[in-house]
Amino acid sequence: MGPAETLFSNYIPVLLASIVGFVLVLSALIGSRLLAPFSQEREKSTTYECGMLPIRRASTNVGMRFYLYAILFVIFDVEAVFIFPWAVSFMNLGAQAYWLMVAFIAILTLGLAYAWKKGALQWR
């Protein structure tokens, strides 16, 4: 087999696992549909909150701070993705590669320090 076929056959179990996992949940749901009682009572399907009918949809207001963390996460996750190949191969690349990565991490740490100073990391 060529490298492409080996790569493909390595990931066959991943495809299979997603199918098996899906079928597992589906079969449990079908089993429950067959066994469980089901009634059409109207009051049962109201939202579980405080007893009164909720006003408006719940999914309208999301705090601004979640987006702030999401942006920070994107920055640092991209950093982690860059560190992945470096972490595997830096022994072959020598000291220069190490100091380049130090500079890269230092720049991002400056960014983190700036966000910290600005109070972006403080949950209010």
Binding site: S32, A36, P37, T47, Y48, P54
Partner: peptide
């Protein structure tokens, strides 16, 4: 017990 329990979905 969980398999035999009614599986509700809220109206909204």
């Amino acid at each position: 017990k969980l398999i035999g329990k009614e599986d509700l979905r809220p109206r909204n």
